[in-house]
Design a protein around this nucleic acid. Structure first.
Lengths: 333, 333
DNA sequence: TTGAAAGCGCTAACAA
DNA sequence: TTGTTAGCGCTTTCAA
């Protein structure tokens, strides 16, 4: 960071006004006479003055920067959420500092602390791993936080999600109506609230409501190869219909089945719960619970702007509509 | 950004030293007596003092923040590059401000200006759209820049790439040896240097060297549906082997062919030039020019840290090795 | 080894 | 409508 070439002071001198007036012009304060404003603007343009955002941040205590905490960079689920966030951030002129927490050099609360040290005005948190320390860390600060695509166990933090229970129940019902009676569920982190308190509960309730007794819950299935390897276990367990939270795991299961010469959906129905691009390009295409990821990100960011502006937000737990999109991995009878 | 609760001043008072000494302790300056250091550290811990990075940035003129400019958030190619960048950034304690330029609210040079106003210490630029204004904007500043996975036309800016000409030639050769004599190339932005000055040149040279006269260059094919729609044109043109720069376009072509009942690779060979996850999960799996995306990002970020530290960098145009991975979309005879 | 003090570039009372 | 002035919280000479 070189010595700044032209500062507000240079503009003030050149335009024969005080720094305060230049500051007012820069910030669009209306208390400036038209002619003065124009003169200052002319000088700003002539000198190509660019305000130093760091100095602005220090003086005003607002950095117009928000922190984004994401589990992995290379997961389209989070990328699509991020895109919605990014578009709204741009609209409201916020920059985004992105922090992934897959690298175990830094734990969640350290990442948050680092963001807070940078004086971000707000944070959007997308991991469904939400340990108590993290919730505490957020609650200790006055910096607003919004959860996107996840929630905390006591629903204390603002969040934007879909109705996971309802969505999963609908998906299970689809497979049940196709005649599949040995249903399973495949999730990533088992301790994630979205899983433990929503998806898995819904699954158990579904079994109970339909007098199905065989419970098949598979946890810690995170990626393509986890899914690929899981398939043989599904066969062993006689599972004939499965709901999978992660697209790449679902595709792993699919390919493993195909490679084993099995028929999808006849031998095994698959419903995936994310609907990123990867779920739609494989053949047979996967039936999905289509979460409105872009919108979820956008709504979360919009809520955050309100929180950062100190506005009242009436509903801090927003559930967006999802869609069950029937493709080729279910019979859809 | 609330009023900061505990500042360097509080620590100084409590530890009965000056702010300067606290600053030295915080920054690991060795000119502090051991006992003094320990006393200060104790107070820091007790008060839970966290330095304000914005104030540090203003005073020291270093923000330990780098800007990342990426064409799209939802493209695994850039996500994998970003992951390499992120890991090295974390190692060197830099934060990342990410800016996508897909949203046309802001042009490239405005995005760059916004980053410079935030006083980033360096920038990594990943778009292969590199208009003259952008190169100029970079050269006007003293802020170091590294291009990752792309280069500027006059190769003035530091970059990390692979040897695109060599890679494409090798891919074309593979198809040629499989008996395909009506080869085509499918690219995204035709004016991207990587395409115009590298891939397309290599393609033309290959045709010439092998006395092939029919030139099939398809430009502006950006995504899955562009690829899907292009397929009928390929058929019309009698193309029997094609090299595609983007994975999603390649998968579009593949699926379009499959849906039309064609055989891949018998009717059409496909080689894709990125090798993201999407290319490996489709069936038949795509033969790819496997770019070491993670490494490219990591090397680019490492180079940037050197540049930011004012170190001499001997080689500012690094080409990393790629690998031609033969899968099911080529005959491989 | 330590401290005093000037300043980084800006904002925001407050006064005029 | 404009200017004066005191910070924002820290780093960094310079002197002791």
């Amino acid at each position: 960071m070189r010595k700044q070439e032209v500062t507000i002071y240079d503009v003030a001198r050149e335009a024969k006004v005080s720094m305060a007036t230049v500051s007012r012009v820069v910030n669009g304060n209306s208390n400036v006479r038209k002619e003065t404003r124009e003169r200052v603007e002319e000088v700003i343009k002539r000198l190509n003055y660019q305000p130093n955002a760091v100095a602005q941040g220090l003086a005003s205590k607002k950095t117009t920067t928000v922190g984004l905490i994401v589990p992995e960079l290379t997961n389209l689920y989070f990328a699509e959420l991020s895109k919605g966030i990014d578009d709204i951030a741009l609209l409201y002129k916020y920059n985004i500092i992105i922090s992934s927490i897959e690298n175990r050099l830094m734990k969640e609360d350290q990442v948050i602390q680092s963001l807070l040290n940078k004086q971000v005005d707000g944070v959007i948190y997308m991991s469904n791993r939400l340990p108590k320390e993290v919730v505490d860390a957020f609650q200790r600060t006055n910096t607003p936080v919004v959860l996107a695509g996840t929630k905390d166990s006591r629903e204390e933090l603002p969040s934007v999600t879909i109705d996971y229970k309802k969505a999963d129940t609908e998906a299970l019902n689809l497979m049940f109506n196709d005649g599949k009676k040995n249903l399973g569920i495949v999730v990533g982190d088992e301790d994630a609230i979205v899983n433990s308190d929503n998806r898995i509960l819904a699954y158990k309730k579904f079994l109970k409501d339909h007098n199905l007794t065989e419970e098949h819950i598979y946890t810690n299935v995170h990626d393509y190869s986890d899914g690929y390897n899981l398939y043989s276990q599904l066969v062993k367990d006689g599972v004939d219909g499965v709901i999978v939270t992660r697209d790449s795991s679902a595709v792993g299961i699919l390919n493993s089945a195909m490679d084993a010469g099995k028929k999808i959906p006849e031998d095994l129905e698959i419903v995936t719960a994310s609907a990123t691009q990867i779920a739609s390009v494989v053949r047979p295409a996967l039936t999905t619970i289509k979460q409105p990821l872009y919108d979820m990100g956008a709504v979360a960011m919009r809520m955050l702007t309100k929180l950062m502006d100190g506005e009242e937000v009436d509903d801090t737990h927003i559930e967006l509509p999802y869609e069950l999109v029937k493709k080729q991995s279910t019979l859809n009878q």
